[in-house]
Nucleic acid binder design. Structure first.
Lengths: 209, 209
DNA sequence: CACTTTATTAACAATGTTGTTAATAAAATT
DNA sequence: AATTTTATTAACAACATTGTTAATAAAGTG
């Protein structure tokens, strides 16, 4: 029964997450967070000393999520390279689908306070540091065998990131455009996923030698 | 010689543009803008009544830029469809290259205040409203002739937007990662442009029937 | 030149926002 | 049960930020 102690703390965290995701650090109001969490705003400062600290907690959590996803993207398997990449794109798309706010959140906060990039960098290199070189070797070998087009792993990575993340970055625009009367967002996502996979696959198809 | 009247106004506008681009509306400070413009901060309110109005001025200007670029992207020419698209992707990439802050600016401000989307929407439909349907017809005809793969114009548009805009969205991250010791950003951009064109071209290549 | 409008300044008002504190209640610990 | 630690509240302090005002100078206009 010591759980109800965390109740309020948890409520604050959840409200803060929403607020920071939506409005960014600068636009977020601790009073608003407290109100939405259903606690007095002194409570917020009791649990999380300052706005900055509350933010950092959420920022780190979010970055952690990003890190974990990176491991997932290019996890080893015995499938042929092309299949592996296809799986990776799909996995990455699904991840963003489940965390649609994540790209803008990170970009926005790093742009307005570049110091914050340190954390992002660390997390990325921790989780995906070695993977890129291994990946590149895989690519090189497959290219030599004529399975795929010769390509830089980092290039393909940016392709995938761009294609998968961007639609979610502008999704709020879409939603505003559609006036929320778009029940078939899911269908749009499915189509997008296929389109992105298709693009990457075609990119990798060896041109006839 | 009545130009020096506008001098301060102009200085404020320029400082404000920088500030809003970098920190967003919420993070921007009118005092900071005034200071950077080299004017007293009462001056700012003299010329632009409120922060909101100053922002709107810049927001509209920026949206206008976006609008003008859209007209440029798919301007008619007598080249074959594939060439036209190639040109479009290149044009669009160059435009973002010259306005690298624009994508994040618009996305950020619309997300934190969705009302602002109205303006974006109007500008887009004003400038690219008819174009999309014409484009689609072009595509359909070309597809029928077997010149290109059958594809939705909107799909291709989002592909292009994603590939071209995203690298600039995360460019600040890049820059932080490289610690500014990257003089060859230009080379990166050239490579990116080629990569994006390549991706779109391959997407459009008809699979052997 | 008289006067009206525009530009500019410094000081200040109003408000919103973050963070604190002192008092109190509840829970845990001994 | 006494005491210490944790939770909670309401009021408030401190500060930053936006916006105003009243006084003054400069420029333009009849």
């Amino acid at each position: 029964m010591t759980k109800h102690i965390n109740n309020k703390e948890q409520a604050i965290l959840e409200a803060a997450t929403l607020e920071f995701f939506e409005k960014g650090y600068d636009g977020a109001r601790t009073t608003s967070i407290a109100r939405n969490a259903g606690v007095t705003h002194a409570m917020l400062h009791y649990y999380f000393k300052t706005k900055e600290q509350l933010f950092e907690r959420i920022f780190k959590e979010t970055i952690g999520l990003l890190g974990k996803s990176l491991i997932g993207v290019f996890t080893g398997s015995d499938k042929p390279v092309l299949e592996k990449i296809k799986d990776a794109v799909e996995f990455h798309f699904n991840f963003i689908c489940e965390n649609p706010h994540l790209p803008l959140f990170i970009i926005r906060e790093v742009v307005s306070r570049p110091e914050r990039f340190k954390l992002v960098k660390e997390t990325i290199s921790e989780n995906a540091g070695g993977l890129m070189t291994i990946l590149q070797q895989d690519f090189d070998k497959a290219a030599e065998r004529g399975e795929i087009e010769n390509v830089e792993a980092s290039t393909l990575m940016l392709d995938m990131l761009s294609l998968n993340a961007f639609p979610f970055l502008i999704q709020p625009l879409f939603q505003a455009a559609m006036g929320n009367r778009l029940g078939n967002v899911d269908k749009f996502y499915e189509t997008r996923k296929k389109e992105n996979i298709e693009l990457i696959m075609r990119r990798l198809t060896p041109s006839k030698s």
